[in-house]
Computed example of a mutant assay.
Amino acid sequence: MKDPDWPIGYARLILDEVDSTNAEGLRRAADLAGPTWIHAARQVAGRGRRGRAWSDPVGNFAASLVLRPEGAPGEVALRSFVAALALHDALSAVAPAADLALKWPNDVLLAGGKLAGILLEGTSHGARMDHLVIGIGVNLVEAPLRGEGAVAPVSLRGETGVVIASEALLAHLAAAYARREATFATEGFEPIRAAWMARAARLGQEVTARTMQGETRGIFETVDEAGQLVLATPGGRHVIPAADVFFDREAL
């Protein structure tokens, strides 16, 4: 029986357990006929950015969207903002009073704590990307112990009292993603960027961007048309393509 609320053109694969939904997406990508959500009731070896482990207690949300995108890799990577907006939409729908914000480059915050993370991975040949996998993890019922991340984790249940099954959140997320993807496909990145900025955490405040080469401290000014972080510093504007962003402790 078809779900009338499930977006047209998107398939879904529901699994009991998997090592990582992103890893499963990469394994299956070549055999999928179109955009496909892969959801697991339990993920035992989830991972985050830069190879960090992603703890996934039972009852939390783990899913990945597998796409066959068109465009240059830089343009394809902008779907991290599409996914973040869609996740914000979905969480706002199930918890309307939640204090949600988006943290560059790929986190969703709840009351200042990390509620969710997004990880993009893909396969490519030369300059052409064959498949993109967008992995999303949400702390629905339990916040894992704090690891190396810049912000302490929180859970939706712990902060708001809202309880929702992971498959129910998937339905909200899939519909929200389809809407935001349609905007990206027809109107480009600018409306996505503007909507993301309207939900950005610490805009206009001082933050620290840390890379493998060092760190830059400055005022979070904007995100540019390429999705890069722009900081205003005493030495001028710094444009940062990739980094971990840290907030001032006293401002938390």
Rank of each mutant, 00 (worst) to 15 (best):
A41S: 03
P191W: 13
V18D: 05
V82C: 13
M197A: 09
A84S: 15
P234T: 07
G51L: 08
R28N: 03
G236M: 14
G235T: 12
P73I: 13
H238A: 15
G51P: 12
F184W: 13
E121C: 10
D89N: 08
R179E: 14
I118D: 02
G9K: 10
A194F: 00
R217G: 12
G218P: 11
N22P: 14
A116Y: 06
G161D: 00
I118T: 05
A29D: 04
N22K: 11
F189C: 11
P69Y: 01
T186V: 07
R49D: 02
H88F: 14
L78H: 11
L87P: 12
A30T: 13
I192C: 11
L32S: 14
P4C: 14
A168P: 00
A40W: 02
G227M: 02
R193H: 06
A77T: 01
A116W: 00
T186Q: 07
P191Y: 04
L229Y: 07
E142Q: 13
L170A: 01
A194K: 08
A226F: 05
P57F: 06
V154F: 06
P57Y: 11
P105I: 00
E17K: 10
I134R: 01
A178E: 04
V94T: 04
H88D: 12
D5N: 13
P35M: 09
I192V: 10
R28C: 14
I38K: 02
A194T: 06
A178F: 07
A243H: 01
P7S: 09
G149S: 14
E181K: 04
L26N: 07
T222C: 06
E221C: 13
G9L: 10
A150Q: 12
A11K: 03
A174H: 13
A209D: 10
R47I: 01
W104G: 06
Q228D: 10
R68L: 09
L32M: 14
S64P: 12
G9P: 11
G158C: 10
H238K: 11
R202Q: 00
A33C: 04
H39K: 01
T208M: 13
G46T: 00
Y10C: 10
L169A: 04
A29L: 13
E181R: 04
P57C: 11
V108K: 03
